[in-house]
């Protein structure tokens, strides 16, 4: 069974029985889209909430929630998925450090990422079936295309499926 590994600000799509994974999500969010009938799963490792935060000319669209999620959806549709069947799951968006008072907007980037992912999915009418977001722990996630289950692992915690 092949496993596709997605890095920071990267996206990928796999078909059953493949799995797709991303390691060490901190404030980043792993967003998965799944078409059960096609056994197709997609994942993107979102690092920042909105493309308006990008500095300079062209940017990596897989980095920002508001471009990465629509792009992943389009990619899956172009590969034969049905937009109306897609279901989403989210994991990540932790606050890795707390620095009493200062640097708040930087530290809360995880929360902002999660909110931006929810917003992008809402705009695309893609329901969110499950989430494991927030908190202060890093996460590794893996989507199983045969079941649509998302495995979430964190240090010091039992692994769980959502």
């Amino acid at each position: 069974m092949a496993t596709l590994r997605v890095g920071i600000a990267e996206a990928g799509v796999v078909r059953a029985p493949g799995t797709i994974t991303t390691l060490g999500l901190g404030s980043c969010v792993g967003v998965t889209l799944y078409d059960e009938k096609k056994g197709m799963g997609g994942m993107v490792h979102v690092m920042l909430p909105f493309t308006e935060l990008a500095r300079g000319g062209d940017f990596n669209r897989s980095k920002f929630a508001d471009s990465a999620i629509p792009d992943l959806m389009k990619k899956m549709v172009s590969l034969g998925a049905d937009q109306r069947r897609l279901k989403a799951k989210l994991a990540g968006g932790a606050q890795m450090f707390s620095l009493g008072g200062t640097g708040d907007s930087l530290l809360k980037i995880g929360l902002r990422n999660v909110e931006a992912c929810r917003k992008a999915l809402l705009e695309l009418n893609i329901p969110i079936l499950a989430e494991d977001t927030g908190g202060s722990r890093g996460r590794t996630v893996e989507l199983f295309t045969e079941t649509g289950l998302l495995e979430v692992r964190a240090i010091g915690k039992e692994k769980r499926f959502i």
Partner: peptide, 11 residues
Amino acid sequence: AVDMAGAILSF
């Protein structure tokens, strides 16, 4: 923090 290197560095 004591956590995964990837999570800490990517943040």
